[in-house]
Design a protein around this nucleic acid. Structure first.
Lengths: 214, 214
DNA sequence: TAGATTGTTAATCGATTAACAATC
DNA sequence: TAGATTGTTAATCGATTAACAATC
C-alpha cells in the first residue's frame, strides 16, 4: 500500500509532467522553485500546484518555495521509478525497434530483458544489445526469467492470441501499442494503451476546430 | 465555427473512443445500439453516454436506441476526419518509418505528402510509396506544396531548430513524438504530443500501486 | 522584523450520475 | 397498447480556484 492514500486520479496523471519539468530544472542547476514560477512554466495554476504537491507532504517551505531535488526524487518514488520491473518486447518491427532503442527504460522503472518476433529475418539480429528470440521460445524464456511486463508492438490481428499465451505464463501487465483493446478478456490485468489513432484524431479535431472558429 | 458549440473538453477526449467502438460495431454489421449496450462495451455509464451523444442531436430514438452508422458518421464529421490535411513527416528513423507505414492517415483526416531526413543513407529510399527527401529541400518543398501539419519523429535536440524553420514556412500544426516540448516558443500553434515517457511512467505507477495494495 | 510563499480551508465551478417524463 | 429507451432536468460528486492564516 502506498503511503500516500489520497492521490486522486487527476493528480496521478499530472505526476509525469511534474517529474519531467523538475528534472529539467535539476539539470539546469535550479535548487528551489515557488509554486508561482512552476505555474508559469507548466501551465497549471499555482493554487493547483500547491494543492497537488501538498499531499506528498513536507517539500515546501513557507516563504521559500520547494526543494527541486527532494520533490523530483519524491515524485519519482511515488511513480515507482526506483523499481526495475522486467519487461519483454513482442514485435521487432519498426515500432518495436524504435521503442527498444529510444526509451530509457532504466530511468522509468523498467529493464528490457528480451525481444521476440516470429519473422526469421529478424530472429538472431541484435537490438539494444539484445538478441531477437523466436516467438516460439517465449514459454521457455519466461519460465527461466521472471517477467513483469510485456510490450506489444505487433499488428492488431496478432495481439489477442499472444496476450492469451502471456497471460497463461502469468504476465499481467502490458504496455500496448497495438490497436487491439487488450483489456477485454481479463480483468485482473493492467494495460497502459498508447492509442496513436486517438491522438491523431484529436489533432484533426483541434485543427478543424481552430480553422472553423477564425 | 463548429455547429456544436457546447462540446466540453472531456467529451472531446472521449470522441475517438466512441468512434473506434462504433466503427467495430459497423464492421460487425450492427445497425442499432442502446446506451446500455454501449455502456457494457465501453465502460462509460449509460447515463454519460446519453448525455454525451445528446449534444450532437437527433441520433437516438426513444424506445429504440442509436443508429450506429449515423452516429459513426457524425462523430467522424465532428472530429473533422472528412478533411484531407496535408502532412509531412520529419525523421525517417525507426519511429518515423513505423508511423508512416502503420497509420491510416486517410481515415484520420490526413494525407502524407512528404518525408524528410538529413541522413544521406535514408535520403532517396522509399517509404509508403514516398521518396525520402533531403531536409535541406524542405523550404522549396513547402513553397510548392501546401502543408498543414508536420509530424516530428526526430531526437529531442533537433526539434527546436526544425520547428523554427517550419514555423517560418507557416506550418503551425504539429504531431510531436519528440520529447521536446514544442509549445514553448509560439502560442499560435497546435501541438498534439505523444509522450511515450509519460505513458511508461504511468504504467510503472499502476504496477507499483497494484503490487503495494495487495 | 518584514516579505514571501506555503498549507489548508472555503467557495466555486463543472462533470458525472440518477431519475423520470417524453415518446418511439 | 405496452415496453423500451432516449432526452433532459435535478442531485451529487469531485476537482479546481480563491483566499488567507500560518510560518519560514
Amino acid at each position: 500500500m502506498h503511503k500516500y492514500q489520497n492521490i486522486s486520479a487527476p493528480v496521478i496523471k499530472r505526476l509525469p509532467r511534474y517529474y519531467r519539468f523538475l528534472g529539467e530544472l535539476l539539470d539546469k542547476g535550479v535548487t528551489r522553485i515557488s509554486s508561482r514560477e512552476l505555474s508559469d512554466k507548466m501551465g497549471f495554476t499555482a493554487s493547483q500546484i500547491r494543492q497537488d504537491l501538498n499531499c506528498f507532504g513536507g517539500f515546501g517551505q513557507q516563504g521559500y518555495g520547494y526543494s527541486v531535488e527532494s520533490l523530483y526524487n519524491e515524485i519519482g518514488h511515488i511513480l515507482g521509478l526506483d523499481h526495475s520491473y522486467k519487461a519483454i518486447l513482442i514485435g521487432a518491427g519498426n515500432l518495436g525497434k524504435a521503442v527498444a532503442v529510444h526509451m530509457s527504460f532504466e530511468k522509468r522503472g523498467f529493464q528490457l530483458i528480451g525481444i521476440f518476433d516470429n519473422d526469421t529475418k529478424k530472429i538472431g539480429t541484435e537490438i539494444r544489445g539484445l538478441t531477437v528470440f523466436d516467438m516460439n521460445d517465449i514459454e521457455t524464456f519466461c519460465e527461466r526469467n521472471h517477467t513483469d511486463v510485456a510490450i506489444f508492438c505487433v499488428p492488431k490481428t496478432a495481439t489477442s492470441a499472444i496476450a492469451e499465451r502471456l497471460y497463461k505464463l502469468g504476465i499481467k501487465n502490458y504496455w500496448n501499442f497495438s490497436h487491439y483493446d487488450l483489456s477485454i478478456e481479463h480483468d485482473d490485468i493492467i494495460v497502459e494503451n498508447v492509442h496513436l489513432n486517438d491522438s491523431l484524431m484529436i489533432l484533426c479535431y483541434r485543427i478543424t476546430d481552430a480553422v472553423g472558429s477564425q
